[in-house]
């Protein structure tokens, strides 16, 4: 099969893709902030002494880690409104699916990071009269965050790519817009190649930066 590449129509429609990229960035920012901060709360719950906190946190993590995000988004869009009578727009459905999933994964990252700190550090904080919260904030987290950061940035990169799943409910983001161009101009090959290129161009420098970050963290240890 012979295909003659022609990106001219893509360039003519750059504004359509630009709107999509902005949608992607908004989706990423909202879900990454909700996911990573909510994950800390769930992660602490997983680590709690009190089983009334630990049990729901564990159930949450298991449910959202063991189901596909795509299914969660579809479920929030189609099933949730029928069950509850609450309208859910595409943006909200995608935000729920992606950020809950991110919370579940990052909760495990936080928990593992916090548990990697020697128990003696908790004891030392406690022995000088610190509360649990003070010890966590002043003693445990500053050291744990260094060990956690590489895993957390990886999660962030995943979240950025996961935003494309929002196209399944027709949220306006890059992949959704490319599909529009492909349908109108009968050029799916160029359109979807363009999406891949856009993601690569955005993420490649970010990934390089995280390598550099990991190297500095390793040195400062």
């Amino acid at each position: 099969m012979q295909h003659t590449w022609d990106f001219a129509t893509i360039f003519q429609n750059w504004e359509v893709l630009w709107v999509g990229l902005k949608g992607t960035v908004v989706m990423f920012l909202v879900t990454v902030v909700l996911g990573l901060s909510g994950g800390l709360v769930v992660g602490m719950g997983r680590y709690a002494q009190n089983s009334a906190l630990r049990w729901p946190a564990t159930a949450f993590v298991e449910i959202f880690r063991n189901t596909p995000v795509l299914v969660q988004i579809i479920w929030f869009y189609y099933a949730f409104p029928i069950l509850t009578g609450i309208e859910v727009n595409p943006f909200l459905a995608a935000v729920l699916g992606i950020s809950l999933n991110t919370m579940a994964f990052s909760a495990e990252i936080y928990r593992a990071g916090i548990q990697s700190i020697e128990p003696g550090q908790w004891e030392a904080g406690k022995a000088i009269g610190m509360t649990y919260g003070q010890t966590l904030r002043r003693i445990i987290m500053p050291v744990a965050i260094k060990r956690i950061l590489p895993a957390l940035t990886n999660r962030g990169i995943e979240v950025f790519k996961m935003s494309t799943l929002a196209s399944v409910v027709a949220y306006v983001e890059t992949l959704n817009q490319a599909k529009l161009i492909a349908d109108l101009n009968f050029n799916p090959i160029e359109s979807y190649t363009a999406v891949a290129l856009i993601f690569f161009v955005v993420l490649y420098p970010v990934v390089q930066a995280t390598y550099a970050l990991e190297r500095t963290l390793r040195k400062s240890d």
């Binding site: 550090q121 009269g129 500053p142």
Partner: peptide, 20 residues
């Protein structure tokens, strides 16, 4: 108990200094 612990110093076998 937190307040009490500020009035009682404790030193451990493994120092437990804050590394950061």
């Amino acid at each position: 108990l937190c307040k009490l612990r500020t009035r009682i110093g404790m030193v451990f076998q493994h120092f437990n200094l804050f590394p950061h």
